[in-house]
């Protein structure tokens, strides 16, 4: 049992196979390309797809940022960052602007990404139609025939029942006017960031053995209706308790057992950057609630 693995763990043959899948995915934006996903030394559902995509594109000069729930400090982000530090020895960072490859679970950074960056998403269920039709043989046909009526009916039923679309994350998008795609379970708050993003977006689903992509500057439209246009979550009168940011995605932190709570930026790097620039939040908000 040798302790030496190839650069970024995967052997070069496997990387080549994954790169071919990535190239195909870029050529057909939003289309799910089957790939021979490997068994990785972390569990399925914990980022094996994202890790394989990252391993396949990583070069020795890349700077890697690893986030989960928007933060570099969450346990799984720490574990996956450690994996690449150990197996690839690449530089890592928590600063969004310094990273060339950003692997993420559930969030898109608040800061606008640039052309030289790649955003790699970890995807649990790549099929946007899966909860409407469990069979892969069926959903592949539906995509091939651009048969997306079922999805529109589902959204319409939401409106008929609740008066609005009751999907808050993994909100389906249409890529370049063709494929309906699951943006991975990011909150729909992040959907507008995907549209015409300068960075390349790659999606890896290890357990389901699928890779898909959005090339830079591609139109990505969240599904909606003319009389019920797509909208994102808002937190009226809420600012980050640490940095005072408004209009960002918030984590709600429970501060006591009497209903006290505070909000702070989900994107921890964005928050730190603001605090470093001298912004301070109103922490009395949550101390008052605590009293």
């Amino acid at each position: 049992m040798s302790g030496h693995y190839n650069f970024a763990y995967l052997d070069e043959q496997t990387k080549r196979m994954i790169r071919r899948a990535i190239l195909k995915a870029i050529a057909i934006p939003g289309y799910q390309v089957p790939f021979a996903s490997r068994e990785m030394p972390m569990p399925y559902g914990w980022g094996t797809g994202g890790v394989q995509v990252t391993a396949a594109i990583l070069g020795a000069n890349d700077v890697l940022k690893m986030i989960d729930q928007g933060s570099d400090d969450t346990t799984n982000a720490v574990a996956l960052r450690g994996f690449f530090e150990k197996t690839a020895g690449v530089a890592t960072t928590t600063r969004t602007e310094d990273a060339t490859v950003i692997q993420t679970r559930h969030r898109i950074p608040e800061m606008t990404l640039q052309e030289h960056q790649v955003l790699v998403y970890q995807v649990p269920i790549p099929e946007p139609l899966r909860f409407l039709e469990p069979r892969e043989t069926e959903t592949r046909k539906m995509h091939a025939m651009e048969e997306y009526g079922l999805m529109h009916v589902k959204l319409y039923e939401d409106i008929a029942t609740h008066g609005h679309i009751a999907t808050t994350y993994a909100y389906p998008v249409k890529v370049m006017g063709r494929y309906v795609m699951d943006p991975s379970p990011t909150p729909k708050f992040d959907n507008p960031k995907m549209d015409r993003m300068a960075a390349l977006q790659l999606y890896g689903a290890g357990r389901e053995k699928r890779i898909y992509a959005i090339p830079p500057f591609t139109d990505v439209v969240s599904l909606d209706f003319e009389d019920h246009p797509f909208d994102v979550q808002e937190w009226p009168d809420t600012a980050c308790a640490l940095c005072g940011a408004e209009g960002v995605y918030f984590d709600e932190v429970i501060t006591d057992d009497h209903g006290g709570r505070m909000f702070c930026c989900s994107d921890s790097d964005y928050c730190e950057m603001r605090r470093a620039a001298g912004h301070i939040g109103d922490q009395t908000r949550f101390t008052e609630a605590a009293e």
Binding site: D68, T74, D251
Partner: peptide
């Protein structure tokens, strides 16, 4: 078991 991983971004949306 991946349900043990933090899901608070999605939970916040819900």
């Amino acid at each position: 078991e991946h349900l043990k991983l933090p899901h608070y971004v999605d939970f916040q949306a819900e």
